[in-house]
Design a protein around this nucleic acid. Structure first.
Lengths: 198, 198
DNA sequence: TAATAATTATGATTTAGGTCATAAATTACA
DNA sequence: TGTAATTTATGACCTAAATCATAATTATTA
């Protein structure tokens, strides 16, 4: 996250995307630094059969899509607005210039990438080795602790749909529905009028 | 990757690990920057049933395990020597100091993390959505192009075992063996006395 | 160089989770 | 406020890959 004033000072634009609109596409080169101002943006992939995999969902003040700004690699996934979203957009060259001028900002960008690498490492291991219930709990615990900074049991009202949980954990929506019901029986989750609590 | 002279100048130690020896463990706090000098190191997880997932395999001059140096997160996986390995080890505080003194080094460390994030994003999507043959080809193509910088067809002699391919792609070794044979029939791979070529 | 371990190989069987179909409940929106 | 779309829900079934068993081949090391 980079302070809004600093972004504007360096000439960042604020762009409004409508729901489902693409910000960039898998395989393309990166030209901008992006940071969410309002709304939500997801990064995703589709396989040949049209199954979606959501890499991550970002809301204010998260940035995303930095890796290809640093290295000569294309975007590994698309970025799509989940809802109407306002996004800061800063030209690549200006962004890199900013990092050199402000080492602390560079460090905070690095810190953000470190956290995402942590999340990816955890989910890769989960998706490859764990059963649906385990995967879902790990995902929800990550969101609860590392994103929403909550600790009390059942204090986290899950704000994503079963379908999104499925797409984030590599499962199918029916499996998520069945697994969450089973987790409710085991008192790992609460379900109050269809909303999950963890 | 940080130049060896610079590492030594900042007081890095060179530590020799024997095959199978642990460098650090999942869940622990990070105190050092690590960089391979010789041999190979892998990062891995084990699930409750003992199934291994390999996050990555690192050889000279790759660094690994930086994310928890930047953010207050534990190691998401173990680091284990695949073979006898010599590793540069630099104290966390000295490492961060070095980055501030040498912005270009900071940028190259960031670049390294960016590449790993790219690999993780690709593999997460593969493991979650693709069939065994697709996963294996994506993994091998990544190793071929992005690690070994090769381009010619079948110029990449795969230097990891079927078991390691399985542990990197979330499959079982029998599945990898069957899938690679099928890929050979489709002329996507060559197999010359048990070695894979891509 | 003999013994042991690791790797590759192959068939038979099992099963978890995907797929398909259908519907109720809730939410969005025109 | 009524209609459409989305989300949650549930049962039946099917299949891809895991599991299990067993062995040949190659590599390691004692």
């Amino acid at each position: 996250m980079i302070a809004e004033e600093l972004l504007l000072e360096f000439g960042a634009e604020i762009i409004t995307y409508t729901k489902e609109e693409y910000l960039f596409e898998e395989g393309k080169k990166a030209h901008y630094y992006f940071q969410v101002k309002s709304g939500e943006v997801k990064m995703n992939n589709f396989n040949a059969q049209g199954k979606e995999f959501i890499q991550s969902i970002f809301s204010c003040p998260r940035s995303f899509g930095e890796p290809p700004l640093f290295s000569d690699i294309p975007y590994p996934a698309n970025a799509v607005a989940v809802s109407k979203a306002e996004v800061f957009r800063l030209k690549k060259e200006v962004f890199l210039d900013l990092l050199l001028k402000y080492p602390k900002v560079h460090l905070s960008v690095t810190r953000g990438m470190a956290k995402r690498l942590y999340y990816k490492a955890i989910m890769a291991s989960e998706i490859s080795s764990e059963d649906p219930e385990h995967r879902i709990l790990t995902l929800l615990d990550y969101l609860k602790k590392d994103v929403h900074h909550l600790n009390e049991p059942f204090s986290f009202k899950v704000n994503i749909t079963r379908q999104q949980i499925a797409d984030l954990s590599g499962l199918r929506v029916e499996t998520v529905i069945r697994a969450t019901k089973s987790l409710e029986k085991k008192e790992e989750l609460k379900i109050k009028n269809r909303k999950l609590y963890r």
